[in-house]
Design a protein around this nucleic acid. Structure first.
Lengths: 209, 209, 209, 209
DNA sequence: CCTTAATCGAGACGGTACGTCGTGTCTTTAT
DNA sequence: ATAAAGACACGACGTACCGTCTCGATTAAGG
């Protein structure tokens, strides 16, 4: 939250905001407040009243921009995503690369941001529109680096080109996601990641050799 | 509430049930009503008031048995599960067996009961107690038949004994579950099942041969 | 309550009021509804739910203005009081004047409004705040005309000035009130009024002569 | 509360009542419990559940004997009344006698028992049956001594026989009662008693002389 | 520069559902 | 047969949040 965003809210003689926010600045403040609420209380406990209060605005202003709690939350989630491009690991060894990628995915899913993501996916079980938004935002993000490390392994002659098939390339990621969808909030232990890589991922990509 | 405010209950023209339900019979009626509400309106739209009305009882009676909407719903879900033992397919061909099992799982997950299951898992993101209940109820159910068909294939010499490793045996099921957790409410098309079996499951179990 | 449980209000086929009531207009509507309920069902059977329904609003709105059923009822009672100034009888004869005043008081106490008053006084036995409100609103109202007719009688030389002492001037009224507090709901018969005037009031005010 | 009334209520391993009470003993225990609740929490906060618990019995047993909370409370109130015959003051002076009687009435009305009485009268505004019960029990009690002191004053030649008229004889008592019905819970200050006697009672009974 | 239309902030409004409490009735078990 | 225990069906409580609305204050833009 930027410092000028809210002047002494709650003080008896309110000094009156320096200037009334509009447009983009206001929108950012609302999304920021929503993001904070999402992290602190979770999606299912997020209320429009609290978001409005935290952002120093009114529900009216929020509903003018987003039609529902769900839409607002998805919009706020987008702001939470890291924007820096991720560098794909390149150790020269497929197993190390895969473990690195899987660990990174695990870190993200177990981070506050990941927790929010899972809550959103859950909370929008019956809102296909929002689900699509989230899926399109998130899903593709993870596939590319796997294709990269597989391509390098193919180049090294380690595995066959068949491993680039989407179902094969994403198998580790999908199994990890599945762990979360079953286990709920807690982080997946590293042991499981090793199992996924050694018992499923590596045997599979090497099968076609 | 001041006590002189009390209304006389039961003076209306109630049909007056033959005899007042109690204990198990009443419990069954409540779970039945809950199950119907779950199928008709979904978990997130289920209200205690409606369940009570539908069951012809009062919220009081419900809260005496289950501490929350979540607990009630999980209990009702249990009643919805089919109780007949499932016969494991045995076609003499591992691929056919796997497809049959996966199709059956898909049918279940896309059925009303499956829909309810997914809603429950979603709605209890932050209620580890209920999650555990569901997981324990549901998860193990699906693994056994996979071990069976794999054992037969091993006996036939089709695949290696390594395929009995839990992560390997459940890989198809887990990938299917993952499809649902991503795609949401809609059923997974048969094409995907075939892909999972042919691109992942079969190559993997045959890898150790 | 988990927040994903939220229902959409207003989707039904509401008639949709021309314009939404606010402030004074709304307040009047609520007090009107309360007054009607008080007369129809009595204070002890008055419920916030019914008042809200009758006024076409929600309990929320009522509780925002009045902290309790008691406070609401007292406020409604105020609206029920006649606002027109009462003309003091002046027959030239103290006995006739007194009987006229006492009859009027009896009529008021036995009217629906009077019944409500008595219910309120009863129902707020242990709410000193509300009692004070009622007392201040109601008690003084009745004393003035008695002082007037007594003053006239003094001017006529009928009685002594000592009759203006508060305890003396209000004795008839207080005895009438006492009849109600003992007898409960029913009206006090005219015979009693005559007795009070002839056996107590007149002898007393004439005593000092 | 008699000692054998309740054995270790609330202790983990209930020792089981020595013997199960029946008939009169049970009835007394219930009325005793009711009386205690009336004094402690007041009529409007008295609940059947608590009475049953306190008496170590069940609501069923209570309802078999008394049809309602009101009837039970009135019955319990009767048990609270002092049974010893009251001695009428005889100072040889009507004013002293009257003040003594009025003070005694004031003490009773402001005592816990008096408080209960007023609550009952209030709470049964619309239960004529119970009101009658209370009135018949209580009202006559107070009149006799007033007739006694007035008779003695007549014998002394202090006042005229007309003072024995019921309305006259009870005027002080009724005015005191009225004070309570207006002021509510608080005790009436002694000043008021003196005023009633000196400004109303004495002038009135002496008027006919 | 001054009007004018739009938007903001604040909060009231009409609803639905919550989880709790007390009523008076009913059922069961044990004395 | 009745006591004790407690479940049952009902209605009301007071609170929370929804999504809509009204209202005055502020702000940007156009004549």
């Amino acid at each position: 939250m930027t410092a000028d965003q809210r002047s002494g809210a709650g003080t008896g003689a309110r000094p009156a905001k320096a200037t009334r926010r509009r447009g983009a600045a206001l929108e950012r403040a609302i999304l920021q407040a929503t993001a904070e609420e999402l992290v602190e209380t979770g999606y299912s406990n997020l209320t429009m009243d609290r978001v409005a209060a935290r952002a120093g605005t009114s529900k009216n202003v929020i509903y003018r921009r987003w039609p529902s709690r769900a839409a607002l939350s998805v919009a706020a989630y987008r702001q939470m995503l890291p924007t820096d491009p991720e560098d794909t690991p390149d150790t020269g060894d497929l197993r190390s690369d895969a473990l690195a990628l899987l660990n990174r995915a695990n870190d993200r899913l177990s981070s506050p941001v990941g927790k929010v993501l899972r809550q959103l996916l859950s909370g929008m079980q019956d809102d296909p529109e929002r689900r699509r938004e989230i899926r399109e935002e998130v899903a593709p993000a993870g596939v590319a680096p796997w294709l990269t490390i597989l391509s390098r392994a193919i180049a090294r002659g380690e595995i066959d080109v068949a491993a680039l098939a989407p179902r094969v390339a994403t198998v580790a990621l999908n199994l990890l996601r599945n762990e979360y969808s079953i286990s709920g909030a807690t982080a997946v232990p590293p042991t499981v990641l090793v199992e996924i890589v050694d018992q499923v991922f590596l045997p599979l990509v090497r099968a076609g050799r």
